[in-house]
Design a protein around this nucleic acid. Structure first.
Length: 501
RNA sequence: GGCGACGUAGCCAAGUGGCAAGGCAGAGGCCUGCAAAGCCUUUAUCCCCGGUUCGAAUCCGGGCGUCGCCUCCA
């Protein structure tokens, strides 16, 4: 199997060949911890989580490095606003970031270095750059000289002269060239600072990624990822620093995720049109948000709206319902009157997992086409649903094992996308409001929510047997108000709790 | 102004030379007391105009429209 990836550096899809056979070294730019992350940030982290998971699924041993920028102008500004120490602000939002990533089911990086723990390496790289004539000192600041690196602009496809004609670069008379950027900044009073050969100061933003990736992965490493808004200047500057300092290629494959948009406009903190990840996850399960984002290719823009989250909720239901139906069918195996499956139906079921796996893999191999991969899973769902619809599970173990294989494949491949399918809500989380309802409608006097729901279902069965539709529907409507849906099956009624009424 | 993406059904979206995936919504049917879940059927002159080709959503040229980067930004 050959994986092809779109490389920003070459502007084309290339066959992915890692530096070391069987292993992948990847680096993804992490957050600057001055606020909670928004769902645009989350999209990028989700994208690279899926890429990492897929590479692992494909058999690679993935070393995944992601920095935390915990010293920066915005953190200092935020701390000043709140009358706190920058380190405190950074620590709080670092924790919040890790919690949010956990909630989104993003796997933890192999290593997650902090900028403040990488200061000696950054000073060393700055010294190397000065020695090699790529950087210069002015009043305690150190700047990288872009004109000293002839390949400057190769990632973003621009040249220094074009950039300068844009007239939006700041004019600082102390710089040799307006595009020169800070490797080291002299600290102003009250700012976090470290001792350096150029006086007390703090590192520039771009430097940490160059240093950490080299320290943790070695050069050149395989994959460098981030949002497409980091291509210029951040990633361009990383390349300039690292390659000027080492004379070695920095990273082989540059992968960039598309922007999340609101009303066709980029979501960003400066525009103020952002939604925080933690707020979305408070209202929708993580798999739903993941599914929404994975239905679009990672490099395309994705317009976000609550309506789309609702659509994704239904898509998610479609993916997990067959798993629920299969479990139900197994539990009630003896109860249902089940037809003998035809050879054709058995053949279809038998072929489905392999077909799905192949289609999934082919899509993912093609630059991580998650939308295509999901289509393969929906096709598998249809086969599973159709078989269960027409034949049930039967007592025949041949069906059971084939159904189990199909379900296991579905679960496994969803897992590669990080879309969890563990039973959404356990009975323990049923609302206590079912108790008074069960007392009124079913005469249930206990305090066990699960038993209360069972009693309500039994009362409804009794009412239906008597053709007392009003009583039966009172149970159904009452449960619906509490967030339960009743599903009548060939082997009895069951409830599905959605957690929201 | 420079550089770069994108425009496929009511909505979202995959597909980059050979009869247009998938999801959501809608319509009809099956099942149901009515529902829910599920199954079956059904919904596209691929932004416009030229060109290349036996054949174009796909390649080339020109329009129109939308977005991103060029400043902190995932």
């Amino acid at each position: 199997m050959t994986i092809r990836v779109y490389n920003t550096l070459s502007r084309s899809k290339e066959e992915f060949v890692p530096r070391d056979p069987g292993a992948v070294a990847m680096y993804v730019c992490g957050p600057t911890v001055y606020n909670h992350i928004h769902i645009g940030n989350a999209r990028t982290f989700l994208t690279f989580d899926v890429i990492r998971r897929y590479l692992t699924f494909a058999g690679y041993d993935v070393r995944f490095v992601q920095n935390v920028t915990d010293v920066d102008d915005k953190i200092i500004a935020r701390a000043a606003e709140e009358g706190r120490e920058p380190a405190e602000v950074a620590a709080d939002y670092t924790l919040a970031f890790r919690q949010a990533m956990h909630a989104l089911n993003v796997e933890r990086p192999t290593v997650s270095p902090k900028a403040t723990e990488t200061i000696p390496g950054m000073i060393a790289m700055t010294e190397r750059l000065i020695e090699r004539g790529h950087a210069y000192v002015v009043d305690g600041d150190v700047y990288f000289a872009v004109r000293s690196f002839p390949e400057y602009g190769k990632l973003s496809g621009r040249n220094i002269d074009d950039l300068e004609s844009g007239a939006r670069v700041d004019v600082d008379a102390r710089k040799q060239d307006p595009l020169d950027f800070a490797l080291w900044k002299a600290a102003k009073p009250g700012e976090p600072h470290w001792t350096s050969p150029w006086g007390e100061g703090r590192p520039g933003w771009h430097l940490e990624c160059s240093v950490m990736s080299e320290q943790e992965l070695g050069l050149p490493f395989d994959i460098h990822g981030g949002g497409s808004d980091l291509v210029f200047p951040h990633h361009e500057n990383e390349i300039a620093q690292s390659e000027a300092a080492t004379g070695t290629q920095f990273a082989h494959y540059w992968l960039h995720g598309g922007m999340l948009q609101i009303n066709s406009e980029k979501m960003s903190k400066s525009l103020g049109n952002f939604t925080l990840l933690k707020d979305v996850l408070a209202a929708y399960p993580a798999p739903v948000l993941r599914l929404l984002m994975l239905q679009t290719h990672y490099r395309s823009p994705l317009d976000f709206s609550p309506d789309r989250l609702d659509d994704a909720t239904r898509s998610y239901e479609r993916l997990v319902t067959p798993l629920r139906n299969l479990e139900w069918a197994k539990r009630n195996r003896a109860a249902g009157a089940l037809s003998e499956a035809t050879q054709l139906a058995i053949a279809a079921l038998e072929a489905a997992p392999g077909t799905a796996r192949q289609a999934f893999t082919e899509s993912m191999d093609d630059d991580f086409n998650t939308a295509g991969a999901l289509a393969a899973l929906f096709d598998l769902v249809r086969v599973l649903n159709t078989f269960l619809e027409q034949h049930g599970i039967g007592d025949n173990a041949r069906y059971a094992s084939r159904l189990d294989e199909a379900a296991a494949t579905l679960t496994e491949l969803l897992g590669v996308l990080g879309v969890g399918v563990s039973s959404p809500v356990s009975a323990a989380e049923y609302p206590v409001d079912v108790l008074p309802m069960a007392r009124d409608l079913a005469g249930y006097e206990g305090s066990d929510v699960r038993a209360a729901v069972d009693a309500l279902l039994a009362a409804r069965v009794a009412a239906r047997t008597e053709r007392n539709w009003a009583a039966a529907d009172a149970v159904r409507d009452g449960l619906a108000r509490l967030g339960f849906t009743i599903e009548d099956t060939a082997s009895g009624a069951r409830v599905v709790f959605h957690g929201r009424g």
